[in-house]
């Protein structure tokens, strides 16, 4: 009976307390999801760094061997072209064909090796395991590494325009920032239905570094703009989006004492702008 009378007297307080509780619960849910995600990223990072390290030696060997093949075939070509070499050998159709094939596949292999080496380098830079402390971060290197990794989503379809300005190194956590770049670049790529342009612009604005990622994609409807950083909000559909990406970006940028802004027009595209302090 007494309880009844208390609640009768203070319904307003009770309601606000329950609201607070609801808020705390929501925050807790958010923190938990972010914790799970960052744990996941950390273990993926370790796995990736380990694999990249293991692949390094064999690809180094293949790359060198291919270079030796190119040199050897070059020497064979020189021999075939010298006057001592009988023309019956030089002009033999089988020899001509084999030489042509050898030269072609060697060139092909060189491009393949270059690409693998590039990807490994990006993976290693992307998944730096030693990232528990703040360090000097070169934003442009981070962007380029991330671009290499999302290359398969962009190629032939999305034209990438880089407008890198004069940007000093900033203080921060490189792999967390790479994760932000990755999320924004993948989102931009997915926002472009067929073909379009992705522009990455960087410049210095006083004591801040500005990074703008602009796509010519479908844009975000006004009613959704206020919710895109909310945990679990996605319009990508089941299996494509988790609704975690942007909320994690938001958290990471907040941890860097920066801010993340978005402007969007449906049918024209979206621009995300990161503002990061040069010194923490």
């Amino acid at each position: 009976m007494r309880d009844q009378s208390v609640s009768d007297h203070e319904p307003e307080q009770l309601r606000s307390a329950s609201q607070e509780l609801e808020q705390v619960k929501e925050q807790l849910k958010q923190t938990q999801a972010q914790l799970v995600q960052s744990e996941k990223m950390a273990s993926i990072g370790q796995l990736v760094a380990g694999i990249a390290h293991e692949i390094n030696t064999p690809i180094g060997s293949i790359n060198s061997n291919n270079d030796i093949l190119i040199r050897s075939v070059g020497k064979m070509r020189d021999f075939l072209n010298c006057p001592d070499c009988p023309s019956a050998v030089r002009e033999n159709p089988e020899v001509v064909k084999i030489m042509k094939i050898l030269e072609e596949i060697n060139r092909n292999n060189r491009m393949a090796c270059d690409r693998i080496i590039d990807i490994i380098r990006s993976l290693k830079n992307f998944a730096r395991v030693d990232d528990s402390e703040k360090r000097k971060v070169n934003i442009h290197v981070g962007l380029d590494n991330t671009l290499t990794l999302v290359h398969h989503q962009l190629k032939n379809r999305v034209q990438v325009v880089k407008e890198y300005g004069d940007l000093p190194e900033i203080e921060g956590y490189p792999n967390q920032l790479n994760q932000v770049f990755m999320n924004l670049l993948v989102n931009a790529s997915q926002a472009i239905p067929e073909s379009g342009t992705l522009t990455i612009k960087t410049f210095r604005d006083g004591d801040f570094a500005k990074i703008m990622i602009r796509d010519t994609g479908v844009g975000i409807p006004k009613e959704n703009l206020g919710r895109i950083f909310d945990l679990g909000f996605t319009t990508k559909g089941v299996g494509v989006g988790t609704g975690l990406g942007l909320s994690i970006c938001y958290k990471i940028i907040q941890d860097h004492h920066g801010k993340i802004d978005v402007e969007s027009t449906v049918g024209e595209g979206t621009t995300f702008t990161l503002t990061l302090p040069l010194h923490s």
């Binding site: 030696t57 180094g60 060997s61 060198s64 061997n65 270079d67 030796i68 040199r71």
Partner: peptide, 9 residues
């Protein structure tokens, strides 16, 4: 494999 590569080069 690294020995073979460098030695051959």
């Amino acid at each position: 494999m690294v020995l073979t590569s460098i030695r051959s080069f």
